[in-house]
Simulated scan of single mutants.
Amino acid sequence: MTIKGKVALVTGAAQGIGQAIAVRLASDGADLALLDLTKDDLDETKAKVEAEGQRAITLGGDVRSKADLESAVDSAVAELGGFDIMINNAGIAGVGAVETISEADFDRSFDINVKGVMFGIQAAAAKFKELGHGGKIIAATSIAAHDSFPMTGLYSSTKFAVRGLIQAAAKELGAFGITVNGYSPGIVGTGMWEQLDREFAELTGAEVGATFAKYVEGITLGRASTPEDVAGFVSYLAGPDSDYMTGQTPLIDGGIVFR
Rank of each mutant, 00 (worst) to 15 (best):
T249W: 01
A210G: 12
M151K: 09
S109G: 10
T58H: 05
N113D: 11
D28I: 04
M86Q: 14
P227I: 12
L69D: 10
G91R: 04
M86G: 04
D40P: 03
D111K: 06
P150M: 09
A8Y: 04
L237P: 00
A140L: 11
V49M: 06
G134P: 05
A238P: 02
R259E: 12
E99G: 12
A22R: 02
R163L: 11
A139S: 15
G60R: 10
G255N: 08
A14K: 12
Q122S: 06
M192S: 08
G96A: 02
R24K: 15
I57P: 03
G164A: 08
D107P: 00
F160Q: 04
T152A: 13
V49H: 05
G209Q: 11
E202I: 14
D74R: 11
V23Y: 07
A20Q: 13
V230E: 09
S225I: 08
L35R: 04
E99R: 11
G96Q: 08
S242Y: 01
L69N: 06
E172K: 07
I92P: 01
A124G: 03
G191Y: 06
T152C: 06
I256P: 00
L237E: 11
F176T: 15
G164R: 10
D43Y: 09
V23I: 14
G191K: 14
A224I: 01
M86W: 08
A8N: 05
N113T: 13
I17E: 09
D107E: 14
L251K: 07
G247Q: 02
L69V: 07
A145F: 06
R163H: 11
T38R: 15
L173S: 07
A51T: 14
K4E: 15
T246P: 01
K136G: 06
E50G: 09
D36E: 12
T246S: 14
M1Q: 12
G247T: 10
I121Y: 04
T158S: 10
T190H: 08
V73A: 08
S148A: 15
A72Q: 13
L59I: 15
A145Q: 10
N89R: 03
Q248G: 01
D107K: 05
P250E: 13
